[in-house]
């Protein structure tokens, strides 16, 4: 059913008309990007992107360096607002409320949408406090609730067994792969509506990468995930939908299987067959 909808979506997306989808479709969507453009100062990095994000599915953004995939991802929790001179136009609508998150308060947006960065960036605090950070920022004081949510997040991030006996130790004592899973747990603990992963395994070795991919597969039915990756095999392994971007434009968007086996666009075909990028 969703596949069907998304296939239709993919077709309409290529045509210029961008009406909001009927209500029936919204229930399967976590968000929809409509004609989103973005400028770093004078440089336009995103050009009228229109894209649907399926509810509780994994959507992968792939493309060559500089194609705007990270820029698009970072628009989702308004990271660009931290730096002067950046400008958006268009909409990113969050469902079911149909709020345009470009017009919401950025701090509000970030409370609802979690993000994991390329390099593991734990806080110089204990493992427990790292995972509890988002909840503390939201003002959660209740100890029981905190420890329950921390445990749940660490289990979701497949890290609980490794750290349950040393929650009060520094997060810097963990290996790189464990630190990245800790960062995922930190993002999951406040139970975000969307989890953004910005090349989460690019700084990790193959074994640590496999663990992160496994955990993404495990949480895919409970969280909406958007992942940027430069690794096409990774996108093929873990995502339900894949968007291929090139020079700030969305070239093709389809269920992952279709995009990798029967790409419709020449650019997509060239990229996934390794002719460039």
């Amino acid at each position: 059913m969703t596949q069907k909808i998304f296939h239709d979506q993919h077709v309409t997306q290529l045509s210029p008309k961008t009406e909001p989808p009927p209500h029936a479709q919204r229930e399967s969507l976590a968000a929809e990007i409509r004609k989103l453009s973005f400028w770093y100062g004078e440089t336009q990095a995103l050009k009228e992107i229109t894209l649907s994000i399926a509810y509780r599915k994994v959507t992968a953004l792939i493309g060559p360096s500089g194609c705007g995939k990270s820029t698009l991802l970072r628009s989702f929790n308004r990271m660009h607002d931290l730096y002067a001179g950046n400008r958006y136009s268009g909409e990113i609508c969050l469902f079911p409320e149909n709020h345009n998150l470009i017009e919401l308060d950025p701090f509000m947006v970030r409370l609802r949408i979690g993000m994991v960065f390329q390099k593991p960036n734990p806080f110089p605090k204990s493992i427990f406090e790292n995972v509890a950070a988002g909840l503390r920022i939201q003002g959660v004081q209740n100890k029981k609730l905190l420890s329950d949510r921390v445990e749940q997040a660490l289990r979701d991030a497949a890290l609980w067994e490794e750290v349950k006996d040393r929650l009060s130790q520094s997060a810097y004592g963990l290996s790189g792969g464990q630190q990245q899973r800790l960062c995922i747990a930190r993002a999951l603990a406040p139970q975000p509506e969307i989890l953004l992963l910005d090349e989460p395994t690019s700084a990790l070795d193959p074994i640590a990468t496999a663990k992160v991919e496994d955990l993404i597969t495990d949480i895919r039915n409970r969280f909406t995930v958007i992942i940027v990756t430069h690794n096409m095999q990774q996108a093929a392994r873990i995502s339900d939908f894949t968007a291929y971007m090139h020079l700030g434009k969305l070239i093709e968007f389809a269920p992952t299987g279709e995009l990798f086996t029967t790409p419709q666009e020449t650019l997509t075909r060239d990229y996934i067959t390794g002719r460039f990028g």
Binding site: F107, G114, M115, F123, I137
Partner: peptide
């Protein structure tokens, strides 16, 4: 203090 650390905090919704 690395930018990473700030982005991590802002990313969680910290003001």
């Amino acid at each position: 203090i690395p930018l990473d650390l700030r982005e991590a905090a802002y990313g969680l919704g910290a003001d």
